[in-house]
Nucleic acid binder design. Structure first.
Lengths: 224, 224
DNA sequence: GTCTATACTACGATAGAC
DNA sequence: GTCTATCGTAGTATAGAC
């Protein structure tokens, strides 16, 4: 849900004078990506956003609510990039390549996206008892995305375009391989000789490498 | 470093009456795997280990020291499983399969291994200013492992057994795919219909799937 | 919506008795 | 090696003025 505040900012200002709310969300996103839920203090978030702690609590009733909203935004961003690729109507073999590229583009867009998606995939929260509404909103986006992957693999197998792989295993492998690369941070960059993973050349190369990796791994006839 | 205490326990008792130290390490490992560095309180660790906070501090001077030692143990366990596969002397194509299996076995051994390895790979610590000795000990194990992967890929390419892939990209892809599967926890199990990822059948299937995935993706002639 | 001030709890860490 | 007691800080969250 985009919330009235953001919409107003979009329609009103030209340089989009970030509302305090979105400023908080951006700062929190960077912090959560780096240190996880428990590693972030709201005082730090507030001052980095140029506000007081109390103001933060005016906008987000609890820390968990803030976290869930941060994760929700990230998932929406990813879905926005990736779902068109799933829906492109091309045959499975080509759709796989489009999805692979869309994943790379989604993660290359913001350095925080991959770490936060990864966290939402494997990290246990101190039982998020947040308002079930938006929490399940975020979770349902995730479920939907995973469902798209599974459907694609199933379709590919049914069409005899893909080998007869295990659908859940393959889904896990694809997601893990794609998200880890852009979540690996310093350690990843060090492997590439300290060149940013997010430079134009690095992203272009990652697209090529990931396409061919998935293509060869899944397709019966990888000569595309 | 195995520490005198553990060695004594090994040589002395038959049922290995866990020293407090190792008990703390085990409890902490489970907590850190689930919630990350910042999400764990030492009070909780101590009482779960049947001890007081002060006793914990008697064994580990700081929280970071405890964390680094937990990570170090995990890395050693992984290295113990995986390095023999790298050193097996078989040609690259077959070595790749052995390494793939060894990775699955390493992660299947303890459910905490993959999450903690993943964390150590992508999570930023509040600058670990721990005694450079053991910290670099842990880091050097990681570097060594990554080096093994890179060497294997390079060798495979040189021997014309592997396609001409990007060495760092491929290393990232392999590690990400392998570790994510066993780190995905509830969400992963849900994809498999709520069957444990660590059951004998699930592990056997994962070995097969991952072998064929890597094999097809990398080898010129995947007809093994 | 933003602030100051505050409540209360938990945190990491230390002192010192046993 | 283990404990109780305590320190100081920072944690999340609230009350209430502006």
């Amino acid at each position: 849900m985009p919330s009235r505040v953001e919409e107003r900012a979009k329609t009103a200002g030209r340089v989009a004078p970030l509302s305090s709310r979105t400023k908080i969300l951006e700062v929190a996103e960077a912090r959560f990506a780096r240190s996880g839920f428990g590693g972030v203090g709201l005082r730090d978030v507030a001052v980095a956003a140029g506000l007081s702690k109390s103001t933060l609590f005016h906008h987000f009733s609890t820390k968990e609510a803030l976290y869930v909203e941060v994760i929700g935004r990230v998932l929406e961003r990813v879905a926005e990039r990736v779902e068109p690729a799933f829906a492109c109507g091309a045959p499975p073999a080509e759709r796989l390549l489009r999805v692979s590229d869309a994943l790379v583009d989604a993660f290359a867009e913001h350095p925080t996206t991959a770490p936060l998606l990864l966290r939402s995939l494997f990290e246990a929260l101190p039982q998020l008892e947040v308002d079930a509404a938006q929490q399940e909103g975020a979770i349902s986006v995730l479920q939907r995305l995973i469902g798209h992957f599974q459907d694609l693999v199933r379709e590919g197998i049914a069409a005899r375009a893909f080998r007869e792989v295990s659908v859940p295993d393959t889904t896990q492998t694809i997601i893990g391989a794609a998200v880890f690369h852009f979540a690996s941070g310093e350690l990843g960059e060090q492997q590439f000789g300290d060149v940013s993973l997010f430079s134009a050349e690095a992203v272009a190369r990652r697209r090529r490498e990931q396409r061919s990796f998935f293509q060869r791994a899944l397709l019966f006839d990888p000569a595309l």
